[in-house]
């Protein structure tokens, strides 16, 4: 009998190993809607606040991931992904949908300013612009640039900072501007000049260049327009310019993975909350109007908004990445 007791004990141990802990995961937080997001800290905070305000506190769990990491997961796992809801760069959502048909139509009225596919709706947009350090420009006796093309001028050597399209989607808005204005051939020459001038100031983060310009490490930079506006308002010697090539934007959107279970319905409700409630906060951090009735400061209205002629997809991004690399 005693022998049996010990045997049972050991087997229970193995049982814990094989089943118990799995049950733990299921019974503990299993009912929560899992949200994957590539958003910045401010974006995540705004989304959390709106969800908590709508009474969803404790009913969701947000996991933040880098854009490429989340993109990789979407492409590799399709609808088997752990997340029920994602907020992600729209072009990645387009490609993931094309490949896996993994998203559910949102099915509610959004009143967006532009048309978007039925399976996603934007939560925020980032717009690219030029900015410069007024003190540095004066000190170095430089001309204030009017276009991205100007940054290729040898007089800016070592004084330019741009985001790298390999890591940053802000970097992509720069490439879009160059290609749509000058085409690939002339564009490549300009790109090569800009990269040459940027040297070590090729930033992996979209906010890297404004930091360099603000710190006086370089004189001019390309990056997120709203950040330059904010830094200027804080009293730093910074000014911004909408380049003649245009202000291009990248949107990040919310989409719901079609898992065909009850969590999908809850995720849909949350998606609506994000678009209606979270936008009020998000627009203060990312001041680009996306929906009817949204207003922003005069300063935050880009004067030369443009969109790329082709739809933004991962394939196009890869094409533009190799354009960028070939100009190096």
């Amino acid at each position: 009998m005693k022998r049996m007791k010990w045997l049972t004990f050991l087997l229970i141990g193995l049982a814990i190993l094989l089943a118990g802990c799995g049950g733990n995961a299921a019974s503990g937080e299993g009912g929560q809607v899992v949200i994957y997001s590539n958003g910045d800290e401010e974006a995540i905070k705004a989304m959390e606040q709106s969800l908590n305000g709508a009474g969803y506190e404790g009913k969701y769990i947000i996991q933040s991931l880098g854009t490429s990491e989340l993109g990789g997961k979407l492409m590799a796992e399709g609808s088997k992904i752990e997340a029920d809801l994602v907020t992600m760069s729209s072009y990645f959502l387009e490609s993931a949908q094309q490949q896996h048909s993994m998203f559910r139509d949102l099915g509610f009225q959004t009143h967006s300013l532009e048309e978007y596919p039925a399976f996603y709706s934007p939560v925020l947009a980032n717009t690219g612009a030029l900015f410069f350090n007024t003190a540095m420009i004066e000190q170095k006796g430089l001309e204030v640039p009017k276009s991205i093309k100007d940054l290729a001028d040898p007089s800016y050597k070592g004084l330019v900072s741009i985001p790298n399209i390999m890591d940053s989607s802000t970097g992509w808005t720069l490439i879009q501007a160059i290609i749509s204005e000058y085409g690939e051939d002339e564009g490549k020459k300009i790109m090569a000049g800009v990269i040459e001038n940027a040297g070590p100031h090729l930033e992996s983060s979209g906010s890297g260049s404004i930091k360099k310009v603000q710190a006086g490490e370089v004189a001019v930079g390309f990056g997120l327009r709203h950040q330059a506006v904010e830094v200027k308002k804080s009293g730093a010697p910074i000014d911004f310019i909408d380049p003649v090539e245009g202000n291009f934007s990248i949107t990040e959107s919310v989409a719901v993975i079609d898992k065909k279970n009850e969590k999908t319905d809850l995720a849909l409700e949350m998606a609506e909350v994000l678009i209606t409630d979270a936008r009020k906060d998000l627009i203060t951090y990312y001041p680009v109007p996306l929906y009817e009735g949204e207003t922003v400061d005069e300063d935050n209205k880009a004067s030369n908004n443009k969109t790329f002629s082709e739809p933004l997809t991962v394939e196009l991004l890869e094409k533009h990445q190799s354009f960028f690399n070939s100009a190096k």
Binding site: A25, G28, Q32, Y36, I61, I62, S64, L65, E82
Partner: peptide, 20 residues
């Protein structure tokens, strides 16, 4: 690890993303 089984050591990696 997944969102629901995230551990302290992997969470640190996530916080690094925001420089927290």
């Amino acid at each position: 690890v997944s969102a629901q089984t995230s551990l302290v050591s992997s969470k640190i990696k996530e916080l690094q993303h925001f420089a927290k």
